[in-house]
Simulated scan of single mutants.
Amino acid sequence: MKDAPISTLPGVGPVTQAWLDEVGIHTVGDLQALGSVEAYRRLKFMLPRRVSLNALYGLEAALRGCHWLHLPADVKSALQRQGKTIDEALRKGAAARCSLG
């Protein structure tokens, strides 16, 4: 299963698969090794306006073999916190690149 393409996971469609390919995540094993949060971080930094928290839920759910709506509330809360941290880092990074000194 680790060598299986990402598309074999539930809820991973062609758009998400293409995005994951672009950030170097090609197989189920790649995603398992990185985890949903790191995969989301890579996607968010690549496509900040297109990737939402739902992508993080979807990646986590795909790894668990369920629909993202069925993730337990405590898991969603933890993912929200981690997603917020990533979003803040992205905003700070953009501000740092635009500052003069």
Rank of each mutant, 00 (worst) to 15 (best):
G29I: 08
D74R: 11
W19F: 05
A55Q: 01
A62L: 05
Y40C: 00
I25A: 05
T27H: 11
G13C: 12
L69V: 13
E60A: 12
M1Q: 10
S7H: 13
A62D: 07
Y57K: 11
R81H: 12
E38G: 01
L79Y: 11
L47M: 06
V28L: 06
W19A: 03
K84P: 00
T27P: 08
A89G: 14
A94G: 01
V51K: 02
V75F: 12
T16M: 14
D3C: 08
K76D: 14
G65K: 06
L56V: 01
P48R: 02
W19M: 08
L69Y: 10
E38P: 04
G65I: 07
A95L: 15
L47W: 12
W19D: 08
Y40V: 00
L9D: 13
A61I: 09
I6F: 04
R64L: 14
L63E: 03
H70Q: 14
L34V: 04
T16H: 02
L31C: 11
Q17I: 03
T16N: 03
L9W: 08
P14G: 02
S7P: 06
V75L: 13
P10F: 09
D21F: 09
N54G: 04
G24D: 10
A62R: 11
Q82R: 15
R91A: 15
M1Y: 06
T85G: 01
G101Q: 13
A73R: 15
C98A: 14
D21Y: 10
H67Q: 11
T27M: 07
V75A: 12
R42S: 01
R81D: 11
K92N: 14
T16S: 08
P14F: 05
A95Q: 14
G65P: 02
L59V: 05
M1H: 13
Q82L: 05
V75C: 14
A96L: 13
A96P: 01
L43Y: 00
V37L: 01
R91C: 08
V12W: 03
W68L: 13
L79P: 10
R50T: 10
M46Y: 02
F45M: 02
A89D: 13
S7I: 14
S99C: 11
K84W: 07
R42E: 00
V37R: 00
D74I: 05
I25K: 04
E88C: 00
E38A: 03
A61Q: 07
D21S: 12
E38S: 03
R91Y: 10
G101F: 12
N54D: 11
P72E: 14
A95W: 06
K76N: 14
L20A: 06
H67Y: 06
G35F: 05
H26G: 01
A78D: 15
I86H: 00
E88A: 09
S99F: 07
W68T: 01
L34Y: 03
P5N: 09
L59T: 04
M1K: 12
K92C: 08
A96W: 10
S52P: 04
A94N: 03
L31D: 06
V12G: 05
L100F: 11
